[in-house]
């Protein structure tokens, strides 16, 4: 195919980049609107642990404690309504840096060990889907 000249390329570049950013914004909007529509079941919030897609455990966020996950590859700490991950066996420790979660839909992911922790039945985060 014939190469477009540089000026035209710059313009098409900008259009493509703009398109990607607009798509990202639209997706974000859709996710936020969906999240708002979700029912917020009464009863206390739970930290739900999924290992390789299967729900493995559910811990009430109101109860403090340390919970070994996935046979000890990760440890979940719950304290004062916040949950976070400590002691991951993986070298990256990305999940340990993901911070403390407490609102609906927030999550902590440990890809190498296949562990996901989400909050369910908690407080809605409002606009920002990551709280």
């Amino acid at each position: 195919m014939k190469e477009a000249d540089n000026k035209k390329k710059r313009l098409l570049d900008l259009m493509l980049i703009g398109g990607v950013l607009i798509l990202a914004a639209v997706l974000l909007l859709v996710f936020v609107l969906n999240r708002r529509g979700e029912a917020n079941p009464s009863g206390g919030a739970c930290a739900v642990v999924r290992i390789d897609g299967e729900e493995a455990a559910r811990y009430p966020m109101s109860k403090n404690g340390n919970f070994p996950l996935n046979g000890g590859t990760n440890t979940l700490v719950i304290e004062n309504g916040y949950a976070w991950m400590t002691d991951s066996e993986c070298p990256d420790k990305i999940c340990e840096h993901m911070g403390k979660i407490h609102m609906n839909g927030q999550l902590i992911v440990c890809l190498p060990n296949g562990v996901i922790v989400t909050v369910e039945g908690g407080e809605d985060s409002g606009v920002d889907i990551f709280g």
Partner: peptide
């Protein structure tokens, strides 16, 4: 052939 290496990299 319509884009520069910037769009390709994006």
């Amino acid at each position: 052939g319509l884009f520069s290496e910037i769009a390709v990299s994006v």
